[in-house]
Design a protein around this nucleic acid. Structure first.
Lengths: 391, 391
DNA sequence: CTGAAAGCGCTTACAG
DNA sequence: CTGAAAGCGCTTACAG
């Protein structure tokens, strides 16, 4: 029963295999009566077509691949969920490729693992090398990307630089001038573009406000909670302490939150903190952050891919932009006062609406800062002795 | 170049297609010299075999399916990662099936979506109906399960009941007698077994200690942070308030933590809290919990499946048990004193080592409780007015 | 509207 | 050790 063939169905229905094939796929050109007979026969025999034979005959695999550098991080899980849903609804199969390191990338691209195996490919936050791009083109199937862009491939992404700029601008608007950054490790090749572009945004915001950047204000956090914690500890050990911190992703902000609490610094009274992504836990921590709709991005690009797979070579490649939005919660406050901003601000397409309050607040910040810094240094030392005290 | 066939390789190497096929798969019976020539030709032409043709000819798909009811929860992501790695290393493809609701389950099982499509199936925490089991058997391929058990299928799982019992026993050892439980929603069919068995363990522990269970002490939390928060609020609204809470999973414990903080209850000084799973964030929150190695479970069962797929019908089904371990962190304390237990305790296979301190502590608990309860009720009301105050 | 036949690209007994 | 041939289970022009 499990391995009925089309021929058996044909025999039972008293027609030719070609008729069975045609009627079962609703190609048309088959009388209603025989179609009915065939349907019944197939039903009774529990017939289901052999995907392998179908693929061989048509040259289409009915399968697409999604390749991602990480799996366990929230962003990727979310994306995968959205993509899987769209792909499944389109009746396609989804092959998952995890390329966590160079060797796996090689096997995936260079050695043609995907060849003859998929009708389309979806690449997630991968910054491709030239040989990889060439290998992808040689596949001769539609390729779509999330979080990156290559000529000829459809893509969707947020503007990381502008959004990061908006995040930092929010801190500036609150009067902050010494703004630290917890960035992704620049040695991690996989995340290259995202980390790089968010850092660009940070610097752009500082520059636009006439603030000086400094290596003292930056630490690397590996896009993880632990990394964010460690980076914050590093920042607290520097000569010039920040009054606000921009973390390139929420996970690192969570780590920062823990590190700050551990040493007795209050957020946002002593230090303001802003993250990036709007991880579900961000709400839990009342973290101010830049929000993006990851599920929707996955959905959109997956639909794009489904369309391209259905009619290859028809639609031109599109380059979609997903919006981001500044979400002000409880971890950012006006410098010195510890008060939260009075009204929520929004960044549409990365632009922060509302007046720039920096000039208004500058004097407040300056008068408060010196004493604040000294007090913090005392507290830091005092609290390091019993780090488990807080919570 | 992308679609070279075996025939072209044969022509270039000056041999027959059969020889190419044999030598490329290393079947043997081919001279070293021709093998070399064939290899070179294949290399030059960039040949890679057509999976579809291979499948049709051999009847083997080189693919296994993993079917899971959830994707975004930590447990499932972790499992998926481990399984994917093992499957990929074995040279197989992994098809992912998300069966989040009844309709998707139907499509997956009843309508034979998997038929002729995979050489093996891995089921994650699915409590199957009889028709589903029948459909699975009809597939006539090896089936493995995680977190459940069906005769004839290999499986791996922890002992949920014993482990939950150990968790509650830990609270009892600390002198607690009014122990609440945040359980999974009993109306969620997907998680049926896990939630049910953990609840069994809770009741078993209470019973063994001579404590009375009560519906007052239980609330449903949907295995999520939000659900845990809401369930805790419910518990706090009941007449008989718990001095300790067992959450059936860590996510719900996180929600409980938030709810307790919000109303001004200190953990563990006022309320002890224990979770289940050892989610990565559990360490962050210093949550006492029952730890299980999810990655390792995924790895083991995936290896089992790979073996069964390689030699179907040879090895008998195995039923593996994975160990759990009580991890004492900062959210559980001796009743009334708010002090943490002096030495860490362990539960190997669900058994808690160490003396039962219940009798020793009983008097303390009783003398402290009445006043404690009243004070808490006051605080609860006071704090409900401005719930956002904390943190 | 229906059927016979060739073909998709492999693998696998079967000869030699 | 090597090759010619049949077959895996579909689809698709091509006739009728």
């Amino acid at each position: 029963m499990a391995k009925t063939t089309i021929k058996e169905v044909a025999d039972r229905a008293g027609v030719s295999p070609s008729s069975v094939s045609r009627s079962l796929r609703g190609v048309g050109g088959i009388s209603t009566s025989t179609t009915k007979r065939i349907r019944e026969a197939a039903e009774q025999l529990g017939y289901s077509a052999s995907p392998a034979a179908h693929r061989l005959a048509t040259g289409r695999t009915g399968t697409v691949a999604i390749v991602m550098p990480y799996l366990t991080r929230w962003f990727f899980v979310e994306l995968f969920g959205a993509v899987e849903q769209v792909i499944r609804e389109a009746g396609l199969d989804l092959l998952f490729y995890h390329v966590g390191n160079t060797e796996m990338r090689q096997r995936c691209f260079a050695s043609g693992l995907l060849r003859k195996r998929v009708d389309g490919v979806l690449l997630v936050t991968l910054s491709l090398t030239e040989p990889e791009i060439a290998a992808l083109r040689a596949l001769d199937v539609p390729v779509c990307m999330i979080g990156a862009q290559v000529g000829g491939f459809s893509s969707i992404r947020i503007d990381d630089a502008e959004s990061a700029c908006a995040a930092v601008q929010h801190l500036i608007n609150l009067g902050h001038e010494r703004i630290g950054m917890i960035s992704g490790d620049p040695n991690e090749p996989q995340h290259f573009t995202v980390a790089l572009r968010r850092r660009e945004g940070y610097h752009a915001a500082l520059k636009a406000a006439g603030l000086r950047a400094s290596r003292e204000l930056e630490a690397h956090g590996a896009f993880s909670i632990e990394g964010g914690d460690e980076a914050t500890v590093q920042l607290l050990g520097r000569r010039s302490l920040p009054t606000a911190i921009f973390a390139e992703c929420d996970e690192m902000a969570f780590g920062a939150l823990r590190a700050l609490r551990r040493v007795g610094l209050r957020v946002p009274a002593d230090v303001s903190l802003i993250g990036f992504d709007d991880h579900p836990m961000a709400q839990y921590f009342e973290l101010t952050t830049i929000s993006q709709d990851v599920w929707d991005q996955g959905r959109q690009i997956a639909q794009q891919l489904v369309g391209a797979v259905a009619r290859p070579g028809v639609a031109p490649a599109v380059e979609l932009r997903a919006p981001t939005r500044l979400v002000v919660r409880g971890t950012t406050a006006v410098l010195g006062t510890g008060q939260r901003p009075s009204s929520p601000q929004r960044a549409a397409g990365g632009h922060v609406a509302g007046v720039n309050r920096r000039s208004v607040l500058r004097s407040v910040g300056q008068s408060v800062n010196p004493g604040y810094t000294k007090r913090r240094e005392r507290e830091t030392h005092k609290n390091e002795a019993n780090t488990q005290e807080e919570r």
